[in-house]
Amino acid sequence: MKNPTNGSLAQTFQTLEEYNPALNAGVEKVALVLQTMALFFLIVLFIIELQNYAKKLNSDDGGLTMEIVTSIGMRYLVAFLMVMASGEILDFIMWLAIQASKWVSSVLPEGTYNMTVPGIKGKVGFFEKPIVFLFSAIAQLAVWTNSYIATIIIFLRAIQLFIFKALAPIFVVFVMSEELKSIGIGFLKQFSAYALQGVVLVLLMGIYPALMQNDFLAGDVATGMDAWLTNIGVFFLIFLKALVVLVLIIGSQNLAKRLIGGG
């Protein structure tokens, strides 16, 4: 199976524990502390829901039955288990995203992730060479910028994932509440979107070189006066495509959120 040669992009294949074991251990300790608060919220929500059901049933000349109490209790038992296993739940979501990233990488063409700007082709005149070199440098700078921005985006994604894992017990507790379940579900959707962003980045950076191949292999470059114009055209197209890819890299998180349905 192919893995990205880019060190930062390869981090999308790592679990949070593999990415930074020390930070992951610290985050798990924070989550453990917050479990106590989450369980307190769980008890409060359980009591409130029982009271709401009691008021509703009393107004209908009825009352709480053991069946209703058991039904509500079972939901909050599930919520209790989710709070206690919140870290494992998020780790499982991350594992699914990592497997998807590996599957995507495994079917991409050979040479994937190897992005280099081609040299000048054909015979270019002495006076035109500085202009062609300038456009070549601009194209190369655009490619490097994409790599650096992707590195920063992946780093920010990792920070967000760690923050979500630390706060997981507090938000997962709301999943089973009738009135507040949107908070818990929204939390899980947001985390899933950050995890899926890794898949989007692997796919995007994987097809990036392929998007450029039409420019690199544009055919024989003419010799003579139009050779330098042909080279400039190739480098300019690389620059424009790199800008488009840059926008997609920056927007990868929003794209993942839309795919998940979280924004």
Rank of each mutant, 00 (worst) to 15 (best):
N58V: 10
D61L: 15
D61V: 06
G62F: 02
G63P: 00
E67Y: 14
E67N: 14
I68V: 04
T70M: 11
T70R: 11
S71G: 07
G73V: 03
V78W: 07
A79D: 05
L81G: 06
M84Q: 13
M84D: 07
S86L: 02
S86I: 04
I89A: 15
I93P: 13
I93A: 13
W95M: 15
L96F: 08
I98L: 03
I98T: 12
W103P: 05
W103K: 11
L108W: 10
P109V: 12
E110M: 15
E110V: 14
N114Y: 14
M115V: 11
G119P: 06
K121I: 15
V124R: 01
G125T: 08
F127G: 09
F127L: 14
K129T: 05
K129F: 12
P130A: 03
F133G: 02
F135H: 10
A139G: 08
L141A: 07
I149Y: 00
I152F: 09
L156Q: 01
L156H: 04
I159L: 11
Q160I: 05
L167A: 06
V173I: 03
F174L: 12
E179T: 12
L180F: 06
K181F: 13
I185G: 09
G186R: 03
L188H: 15
L188W: 03
K189Y: 01
K189W: 02
